[in-house]
Simulated assay, not measured.
Amino acid sequence: MNQTPLILSTWRFGQIANRAGWAILSQGGNALDAAEAGCRAVEEDPSVTSVGFGGYPDAAGEVTLDALIMAAPHRCGAVACVRDYLPAISIARRVMEKTPHVLLVGPGAEAFAAAEGFPQRSLLTREAREAWQRWKQEHGGNIFDKHSGDNSLAQDAHDTIGVLALDVEGRIAGGCSTSGLPFKLPGRVGDSPLVGHGLYVDPEVGGAVGTGHGELIMRVCGTFLIVEEMRKGSSPTAAIKTALERINRQCRPNPRQQAAFIALRRDGEWSAGCLRKGFQVAVRSAKVDTLMEPPLVLMDGE
């Protein structure tokens, strides 16, 4: 199958991911390698405070990473609550390739990363530590304050890097990586490392990736729902609309909570959509390299 390569990524920093992924796709490389490279590039950028090195910590002051990589239901791997190892997306790929499991978490995932030769390193930057210290003062040092992970910063900084890539052979793969909601309760895991929530890819149909407030996406199995809608014949836009409408109807998001998706069909048709304004999608192909508003905003008047 001869296909026109394409890479899509979430948010403004998706252009960082696209640049890294396109370097692979433009040379005839594999979609899975491109998705991994894209996520990895964002994880390594300390200016991105919601992903990887430089990500804001949890309420206890620890940076914990979640990631998932997927090319098919039988080819996926993930990690969650990983401290002191990077890139999480590459550790997730090792889980996929070297274990019979899908998801490793916490100390077990860290021990696996160490055994696979990933170097241990601190992920907490000075800027992230200072932001955490300000937050802690505001909450009296109580990490179990009922507002942990539900503060205004957490509502605004929920920007998972999600990547979908299509290579010249027509293969689709995806990756997503995050440090999660700023100052979340220790142990909290969002949608990103969960198959069918933050990411789902079926080579017979296509793929979808989600970003935003993870609890919203988790409650409707957002990306699995989108792929299944496309399987039934819906366009990527219509499939995303179904997921967003279900989130809005059943999950009762507050006015600050965002949910957004990118969907890519195996024939190369793609779309993006979000609950409310603010989301952007980065798109790169042989003809296009741009950052754009999504075609669908469910609550366009907001």
Rank of each mutant, 00 (worst) to 15 (best):
Q137W: 06
Q137I: 08
Q137F: 06
Q137H: 08
Q137L: 15
E138N: 07
E138A: 12
E138R: 09
E138S: 08
H139W: 11
G140D: 09
N142H: 12
N142D: 05
N142A: 09
F144H: 14
D145E: 06
K146Q: 07
K146A: 13
K146G: 14
H147A: 11
S148I: 13
S148F: 07
S148H: 08
G149L: 07
D150R: 13
D150P: 08
S152I: 11
S152F: 04
L153A: 10
L153Y: 05
Q155E: 14
Q155T: 05
A157C: 15
A157W: 14
A157S: 15
A157G: 03
A157K: 07
A157N: 06
D159W: 12
D159A: 13
D159G: 09
T160D: 06
I161W: 01
I161Y: 00
I161P: 01
I161F: 01
I161T: 06
G162D: 00
V163H: 00
V163G: 01
L166R: 12
L166E: 15
L166P: 15
V168M: 13
V168D: 14
G170F: 14
G170I: 13
G170L: 12
R171T: 15
I172R: 09
I172Y: 10
A173G: 11
G174A: 11
G174F: 02
G174H: 04
G175L: 08
G175E: 13
G175F: 11
C176Q: 11
C176I: 07
C176K: 09
S177A: 10
T178L: 11
T178Q: 08
T178D: 06
S179A: 10
G180D: 15
L181E: 06
L181G: 12
F183L: 10
F183P: 10
K184R: 08
K184G: 12
K184A: 15
K184Y: 08
L185I: 15
L185A: 11
L185M: 07
L185V: 08
P186K: 12
G187H: 09
R188M: 10
G190F: 09
S192Q: 01
L194K: 07
L194E: 05
V195K: 04
V195Q: 03
V195S: 05
G196W: 04
G196V: 13
H197F: 05
H197M: 08
G198W: 01
G198S: 03
G198E: 00
L199N: 03
L199W: 01
L199E: 00
V201Q: 04
D202R: 11
D202Y: 06
P203C: 12
P203D: 06
P203Q: 14
E204V: 05
V205K: 05
G206I: 01
G207M: 02
G207L: 04
G207E: 03
A208Y: 00
V209D: 04
T211E: 00
T211S: 03
T211N: 01
T211G: 02
T211K: 00
G212V: 15
G212D: 05
H213T: 06
H213K: 10
H213M: 12
G214L: 04
E215W: 13
L216N: 05
I217S: 03
M218I: 10
V220T: 04
C221H: 04
C221D: 02
C221W: 04
C221R: 04
G222P: 02
G222I: 01
T223H: 01
T223S: 03
F224A: 00
F224Q: 00
L225D: 03
L225Y: 01
L225C: 02
I226N: 02
V227H: 05
E229Y: 04
E229T: 03
E229R: 09
E229A: 09
E229N: 05
E229F: 11
